[in-house]
Amino acid sequence: MAELLQSISGGLGQGSIYALLALGFVIIYKATRVISFAQPALMLAGAVLVSYLVGAVGFYAAVVLGVVGAALLGLGIERTVVRPMVGKPVFVVAIITLGIDIALRVVVNGFIGNDVRQVGDPWGFARISVLGVAVQERHIATFVTTALVITVLFAFFKYSRLGLAMRAAAFDQETALAQGMSVGTVFALSWAIAGGLAAVAGTFVATGAGLDQQLWIIALKALPAIILGGLDSLGGAVVGGLTIGVVESLVATYQSDFAPWLGQNFAVVSPYVVMMLVLLVKPYGLFGTREVERV
């Protein structure tokens, strides 16, 4: 039982990371209909920024500045590279974001070097006992922070003027324009939010062990989370991310006992297996809208 709870708590921590990345992707997609593969680079950039700032300002301030920095980076990418592509085929723009991702990672790698950099988080691998189960503090911190970020984000979309404009423009751009909204602002804002979310994700991935040039690979698992939840569903991104995290963790914990014939490291591919199983039953993801195009 303790083992199960431990596995699930670790899965929720990791799943929170996928959820944050998936949310950024979905927000960009809903607002601009762009399929962005630039999330891994934004995540890496955010974490690296935190690792450079932490010495000067401490962990929490570094996270805030890292989020702001990655948000500005996302905004800059939108303005300079993505905006001029408005109206181009979805596929073309998606490939361009892939190019942005690779280029940006090359630059950021220059700042990482061959070492492992630390984000200087207060948790390390320390554990605390929750209901008799030893849980890593950093997993709790990740989960709680994510819950907080998501709450703020949903409140932003529900109550704020700009959040409402983003929902309106996502639904019908011309009508949004007719209300006096700036669709350009909505585009830029969606990339900024995605950048900020990626920075939070990156920082929490790097808690404990630190970060190196391979950190971005984690972000790839946001993809099955997105497909699972549906390309255009914010709630779906959250549920998808957490599900993938928990499944991956459970498989890692129990597969060697129950299905050793699947070989070692099956946990690594388990998110993709879950994704394919869901797609067989629900081709638009669990919460996706029907008319959304498939990638």
Binding site: L164, R167, A168, F171, D172, E174, T175, A178
Partner: peptide, 12 residues
């Protein structure tokens, strides 16, 4: 301008 065909935000 009120656009032809009402164009309300149906999801809101």
């Amino acid at each position: 301008q009120v656009l032809e065909g009402r164009r309300i935000f149906a999801e809101l």
